[in-house]
Amino acid sequence: MKISGRTWPNSLLRWGFVAIATFPLLAGLVYAALYSVGLAGALSDGFTWRHWQALWAEGVLWQTLGFSLYIAVVSIALSWLGALWLVWLSRGRLQKGVLGYLLFLPLGIPAIAAAFFIFQWLGSTGWLSRLADQIGLIQQPQDFPNWVNDPFGIGILAAHILLALPFFTLLLANIYRQERLSALIVLGQTLGASTYQQVRRIVIPLLWQRSRPVVLVYLLFVLGSYEIPLLLGRSHPEMVSVFVIRKLQRFSLDTIPQGMAMAVLYVVLVLLALFLFYRKRRVI
């Protein structure tokens, strides 16, 4: 008997799986696209670009996508660089003992709890503010810096970094050991490389090369995050998920098509990014 991937149960599994993974999304996408141009929905009255134009004209489209991208890029960049720094300082020895346990801890925190915690910690009446009041740094909550529901998304970034920094630290520490970076660094030293050169020419390229696929997936994950910006964000600008779900659920019926339009654009962009990246690399 020859083990083969081309038997009918395997074909069934494959096709069945692809159907589950893609069909609901594609069907929803087509429906949303029709809805966004007035061809579906209870209040639809024929084909129109009105809703797309409304998104475009008010600048909401770019503000929403731009803000989401800003949060994703900044939180991932800070987490990755922070992780790099920690791994460099500790020479990749981070996973052992109690300290190792602590690093793993945030991986078991759900986004909604992380957001709630950041609110209760960094908010103007949060724990830090209470401590600041206690030692006389501030007189009233209004004096505390604006870190939650703030214009720069500091609260949102903090929550994402709380979850991503330990993750990337563990990831980079793993790669550090797997790639025997310490040996390479010693080699670099014997060849007379300065600390800066070691980091610049050996550590960063190798860690970046190996961690890039994960960085992309995590970036897309943050881009679509919902709970964290829902609790810690401002009324405007919003991140994509918050915008879409608010439009679909919480507002005037006339603007549901705008939510659909934004959802279509988001899904198409994300799948495109995935496709381009996937095609270029052997391993994701």
Partner: peptide, 8 residues
């Protein structure tokens, strides 16, 4: 509004 959108 959520009730309205659910029913719609």
């Amino acid at each position: 509004t959520q009730i309205v959108s659910t029913l719609m």
